[in-house]
Nucleic acid binder design. Structure first.
Lengths: 414, 414
DNA sequence: CGCCTTATTTCATGACGTGATTTAACTCAC
DNA sequence: GTGAGTTAAATCACGTCATGAAATAAGGCG
């Protein structure tokens, strides 16, 4: 998100953007509050506000207070100014959700995916079907949609057309964007890595609110992370930053599915945990075909089963070491542990994880970091993806399309 | 380095800053070149340029070219607009260097430090003496000094007055800034971690030039790093970001001087390498009281001595794993290996280090990353520290003091 | 020496943010 | 009720800025 500078018009756009961000996260606010929060003069707030209201992005929402003076008029975002869609391309299903501007869900659609059949074509079909379904279900015209955010597993190469490199899916440079275009959609698309979109969801609405520097650590079958620096997602030079799972925590250790050895993921990923438990017991895998119930079973077994406890203790230790590395390197205000396996582990062992992290990190940065659990659950990928077009709106993209059937159209100003 | 926005005057400052950065790193340039490089209109370049010339920051430096048209007038920074001082507080000495704006050395001074006597008082005395010495030696009046950058070991807490937490020195919240003030200096001070200043030196003038995302990995007696994100040094929430040395690469491994175990530093720091070699041989430490010659001796012994070769091979492997972690997490364009021990290792084994890093990192980000050696040598700490006040100047700090005896003072404009 | 070419400056214009000033919208005491 | 008091918001006049267009400067070339 570069900020072009130069002309005096860009300045206006910047100020407008600052004001929108402020309002978005602190609704409702009076013009006066906004002036304080943004540092802009009351006069400027008044001007920018008029513009925003006439565009329909912002609406007045009643007045409040008055101990003797003119009451403050409260301002809100207009949730119906436009809609956004979030797509979560998961291992077993595609989920599509329609939100209004304030991220209230308006419609949902799920498309199951055969775990062993991840052809890009299937995924594209699922997404397109989901888009049509939520638009119909929510009774929203596509012209009112600001954009569609899509969270996918794997690295997304942002170019003129986004390319997806999916390790898990065995995708190699899949041109998802142009495939969707070929499928007929004309909605603005924002494609990003699912861990990053989920991180952004936590950053905006979950345990990360207000953080400038944070790492959202995600543990599912595999291990990933979303890195927040200076208040926004860090992507690195080719958008693959945050691949935390393949950090070496044990040189010469267990072989990882990435081909290397000693990776963090080879110890704390759900698959690895179950595998370690299996080889310790020497028996067959735990009950339940899916990892989720198997891991839950392992965790509840730990109370009585020494081998299960041993595996989990080891997991906590490796995880703590991995988190400590993040603390030392990034010096974040917050580490947020998520992903379905991360939540299972965290619910049982957060204090132990904190202690392990303490042991492996430097005193000073550790003392400045809080380690918490995600608040939004594992379904936040779609939510986070849907924030991408909202982010663009807040950053001042020119009114996209005519967006908004629901505007109060009193443009008679002056 | 926040960029305050709001008024139209800030816009001017921003444009001025963009122009200065461009000119600083691409001297000399004509106004036309600048217009192209910055995206500003020729008219604006002309205006801003006039201002800069009248202030004395920029000077015209001859014209060039002319295949039929008016020749381009070349512009340069005025190296004598003001001076900056860089201080390197090392383990065995304090080094103070005086530079002009283009970082040409004008004077140097060294103050030896007893390795076992790192009292803050001694250090402050040394710095103050050094400042006086270089100013005298360089025949520069203190009013012409834009600022003093000081690179120290340990974490620097940037508050209203910088506090230094030095692990190595056993410093705990030493108020270095106010101590120097109490010592009588009135020069603007910029205190930062030495690894970060060295990283900035490489970023500006060394192997990091032009990189937007890079990590400068420093190996000396200990191990540190300087992280560059989006073109500038990343500091994290309390400026301790970049503590790479205590990343766990071997859970339950060697005890580290930080108190934890399995830290990268416990394997690839010079002290650790020598220690590992010592315990492998079972004999006394290598010849040479200082680590530097001992490590050099170990490296040259590796050609004939199997134990030495074994230790170094292990070191390469651990180092590669550590670097791989940086590649995965940060997805940088470049990893730059430095520090005196890093250079010794790198000169002998860079290809092996690259290979080890490849084995432990993901294919895609590894392919996008080049791994190189530092170009400026271990003395770049002072140089990098001295860039701090220059950075401030380029970012558009109001002309600090009256800076510059050497200005052409024709301020008669319109 | 005049014409051509290219770099730089000048000029008029339109936007913008802001402090000061007005106007708007209420409360409250009487 | 009604006027004084109080606070929020809008308006105004002003100064600053970047910019495209036009003018000017500075050289080459025939």
């Amino acid at each position: 998100m570069e900020r072009k500078r130069g002309t005096v018009r860009d300045l206006r756009r910047d100020n407008r953007s600052v004001l929108l961000w402020s309002l978005y996260f602190d609704q409702p606010m009076s013009r006066q509050d906004l002036s304080q929060a943004t540092g802009l003069s009351p006069a400027s707030v008044s001007n920018v506000t008029r513009e925003l209201i006439s565009e329909g992005v912002v609406v007045e929402a009643g007045s409040v207070d008055s101990d003797g003076g003119r009451p403050r008029v409260l301002l809100r975002m207009n949730p119906d100014y436009g809609y956004v869609i979030g797509v979560d391309v998961g291992e077993t299903r595609i989920r599509v959700e329609l939100f209004d501007l304030m991220m209230t869900v308006r419609a949902k659609a799920d498309y199951p995916l055969n775990p062993h059949e991840h052809g890009a074509g299937k995924v594209v079909d699922g997404i397109l079907a989901g888009l049509a379904a939520v638009l119909a279900d929510g009774a929203v015209d596509s012209s009112a949609v600001l954009g569609v955010g899509i969270g996918v597993p794997g690295v997304v190469e942002q170019g003129s057309e986004a390319l997806v490199h999916g390790q898990t899916y065995d995708w190699d440079a899949v041109p998802l964007e142009s495939m969707l275009r070929a499928g007929g959609t004309e909605l603005p698309l924002y494609i990003d890595n699912g861990a990053k979109t989920m991180g952004q969801a936590e950053l905006w609405f979950g345990a990360g609110r207000g953080a400038q520097n944070a790492v959202i650590a995600l543990i599912g079958s595999g291990v990933g992370a979303s890195i927040i620096t200076n208040g926004s997602t860090y992507r690195g030079s080719t958008s693959s930053a945050g691949e935390w799972g393949h950090t070496t925590v044990m040189v010469g250790g267990r072989t990882c599915r990435c081909g290397s050895s000693g990776c963090l993921e080879a110890y704390v990923g759900a698959e690895a945990i179950l595998d370690r438990y299996g080889s310790l017991r020497g028996g067959p895998p735990l009950p339940g075909d899916d990892q989720e119930s198997a891991l839950a079973a392992l965790i509840s077994a730990a109370a009585t089963s020494p081998p299960a406890a041993e595996v989990l203790d080891g997991t906590v230790r490796y995880l703590g070491a991995g988190i400590a590395g993040l603390i030392n390197l990034f010096n974040p205000e917050r580490i947020i542990l998520g992903g379905w396996a991360g939540l299972l582990l965290g619910e049982r062992s957060l204090p132990a994880i904190r202690e392990a992290a303490r042991q492996h990190s430097l005193r000073q940065p550790f003392a400045e970091t809080s380690i918490e659990l995600c608040r939004l659950g594992p379904d936040a990928v779609a939510l986070g993806a849907a924030t991408l077009p909202v982010e663009r709106l807040l950053n001042g993209a020119a009114t996209p399309a005519a967006a908004g059937t629901n505007r109060s159209a009193s443009l008679t100003t002056g």
